[in-house]
Amino acid sequence: MPDATPSTQHAAPGGGPPPDGRPLAIRLRAVAKTFGKGESAVRALRGVDLDVPAGALTMLVGPSGCGKTTLISILAGLLARDAGELAVFGQDLGALRRDRLSAWRRDNVGFIFQQFNLVPQLTVAENVSVPLVLKGESVGAAVRKAHDILATLGLEGRGASAPLKLSGGQQQRVAIARALIHEPRLLVCDEPTSALDAELGRRVMGFIRDRSRSPDRAVVVVTHDDRIFHLADTIAHMDDGLVRSVERRAPHIEPPQTAKQGSA
């Protein structure tokens, strides 16, 4: 854990700023996860320490099977850890019961899946509206907001289409709209650009990066795609169930020009 000194970083989860001056969104200490039992047990995470800064785009990179998906599943509240500490915006997810946890995800997390998982029988706008509808908003109001956010993603007029009528890149933007419509504090993406060409991948990541620029937001992206590494504010390198190193690329709080003291 080259850059993290747990004793000095924060006393309380989500508390004071880390040494480099960035507020903290997510704090993991010695997080472990094992799948299965006995002979066939797989230790997917073997004590991960990681600080995910707020207002920044964090990438998780590493070889296949090193535990990236497992890690974002845990910090998004989809998967329970076996051991260690985890606080997301100050909330210990392990302390929440199942139904509270799903309500927490509904209120705080946006997801972008590799398979976009857009429901083909629903229109584009209806797909995008789902997080708001889940929060109790009326379908009518939610769909109107969906049209608005689709417009900001260059998809105006496409809200009434069937998702499968759109190109892969357009579908990915629909998925992004769906992940962002309820303005989640945490956005997690697993391989969001793997289905896109280089140019589209950069544009999509640029959009996601812009959304991270707020002190009460955080974005975590799992990727293999070295074409987009340069957009990251922080890159956590994983291997064999551990975070081996963290590159901090730039300061992250607006205005970005004030304190350039990125660490590596």
Partner: peptide, 17 residues
């Protein structure tokens, strides 16, 4: 539809819903 139900579940839909 299971994958969509799965996506809804991830997005915070309760099992009851």
């Amino acid at each position: 539809n299971l994958r969509y139900f799965g996506a809804f579940k991830a997005m915070g839909a309760s099992s009851r819903l």
